[in-house]
Design a protein around this nucleic acid. Structure first.
Lengths: 197, 197, 197, 197
DNA sequence: AATGAATGAGACTTCATTCAT
DNA sequence: AATGAATGAAGTCTCATTCAT
């Protein structure tokens, strides 16, 4: 049906736009990306962007929701197969690395973005937090991790990772800072929290 | 002398401008503050800002240098009277708290600021790092801290603190996140790194 | 096709802008014309000017190239049908008269304009010089013109004409100085350089 | 007397300002020179300029009047000792060369300057014209110069000289175009107008 | 639905001019 | 009379958003 085709077509363009925005956001920064940059990257006209998103804020929110959910989902997915905390953290790093450029921008700019963006970001954190905290609690109960408030356990880990992301140019000079430092960070964090026997 | 009066007057205005900028940067963000915001906050005309700073970048750099150095100096000053790592970290928190809004913006936006700003930021970190690392090394040697690479010790601490700063609205809802969480963070971090006897 | 329509529309606006600028340049002077003057004269919004020309310099260069080339071409075209020097100089005057206001500004301001403008101006002069010099040489060889270095022949002529253009308000009070004095200047110049028999 | 001293002092500062402006106008162009440039060049404060000249236009007019008269006078002075047209033209060139930078700017920008400036410029031309025309008439009567309307004789000469001044960068690349081309121009012009025997 | 030309609010910057000392 | 800090009007340019096709 023509009606259906149109719908599909529209959905398709929207998808292309979201992906282009995701990529540009990673490259240029979220707030520093112009609407026209996205149009160019998506290979559509400038006006088309506004046919799909009411305004800039809506687009930013949509991108963040879309990819936020994807990242959260992916984390869930991988996390459910994990056995211990260490494995979970490794998966966390893997998920970040898969979208490192975008994720880094998000961490950096989250504060200045629309509330939706902020909420989505929190949602991602929650997804990760849920699994990690659960697993950490278990290992604490088993006497394998030092006992501490779960939020501090989580925030120390995330703070450490974000710190490296935020300073990736200093640490990795354009390369993936997770690829280069991820294992070190993981090992370090575990050595701080693991109970030595 | 008249000459001196004038010089003083100009210096005074410059100081007012720097302070206004410092305050506005803390409130609105560094890049998000318009030159006219600063003029209004300082109670001078728009043109006056440009009589004191060649352009926006020069103003931003000046503010960051001015207050960056002040913060670094203050850290040095207080740090030299400290005895152990824990006291040092407490002083670090104190120094941050004294300029919390501005410092938070700096942490957040450093990447997008002129090179001078970035350099100044690194200088602040170095001032802190110097004392903390030295002291940490000593305590590791004395068997009071778990042995680990100093940069990881430092980065874990800073990462944790910055994480709370970055999410201060979440954690403290507008209040000083350092005031509210500083002691908890310090205690937590020490418990992770202190050798239990 | 829609594509073509759009292209045409844009081309049309660009043309209007160039013509508006050409006219304003002639009226107000090239450097003294503001971008907004051109927008108003063209009947478009301020921003539209920048949608067509990256910046003021680009616009100035484009106008000068566009009309400079047109003038040079027109000179070539008319000149190639001329038989003698006198006819050529008459054609030269005609070409100037066709764009007198703009040409006068160009002569006056060429020095202060972007290099492209300067180059274009030189190109116009060259186009004229080429024909005139060739023809003058021939007539000198035939013993009909006093022998002299060709560049002096040319520069004396151009200097005379430009002098009247530059002082057109004095000589013609707003009217075309070429219309009023052209024939006189031509006759005078010929009488100076023609060999009297 | 104190009153007198003050007056003298004021007169002195005014003179310095006029000379500084004259020099800056020659270097940067008349319209392109900022009031502050002149203050700096004169070694006085920015405000002092306005204590002596109501506004920019008044200053420009004063400079042009001052030096216009000086040049006119100097031309008169030298001209009265001249015997023939050729000597007069040589003196004309000499007078121009003595203030070449300023004179060139004046020629170039006269059209865009306040009416007073324009009038002064005309006055200079008249002073020169007076002597040259008188002398030219005499030589025409004596059969040594080709008979022609005096204004055309004069305008051809001035047009030629101004053309070289206007294009001095092309012809002399920063050096004095009069020094380099003056003699050639003079010889050429005379050869055009002198009666060959 | 897509297009892309046009719009105009808003930011930075310059510089002649004013004014208190 | 001189000073120089402060002023603010005016100009250039950017870019999110609108709209006719």
């Amino acid at each position: 049906m023509n009606r259906n085709q149109r719908k599909q077509q529209k959905e398709q363009t929207r998808k292309i736009l979201l992906e282009a925005a995701f990529s540009e956001f990673g490259r240029r920064g979220i707030m520093a990306t112009r609407m026209s940059d996205i149009a160019v990257a998506a290979g559509v006209s400038h006006g088309t962007v506004f046919a799909h998103f009411e305004n800039q804020e809506a687009l930013i929110s949509a991108v963040i929701e879309e990819f936020g959910e994807k990242i959260a989902l992916r984390t869930h997915e991988l996390a459910s197969q994990c056995k211990g905390v260490q494995e979970l953290l490794a998966v966390h790093l893997l998920c970040i690395e898969e979208s490192e450029a975008f994720y880094t921008r998000l961490v950096n700019e989250a504060r200045f973005l629309p509330q939706v963006a902020r909420d989505t970001f929190i949602m991602i954190q929650s997804a990760v937090s849920f699994h990690i905290s659960q697993s950490a609690q278990a290992e604490m109960d088993q006497g394998r991790l030092i006992k501490m408030p779960l939020h501090l356990f989580f925030n120390t880990w995330v703070g450490l990772v974000h710190y490296y992301l935020n300073n990736s140019d200093l640490f990795a000079g354009g390369d993936s800072v997770i690829k280069r430092y991820g294992p070190v960070l993981l090992e370090h964090f575990m050595s701080l929290t693991r109970i030595r026997q």
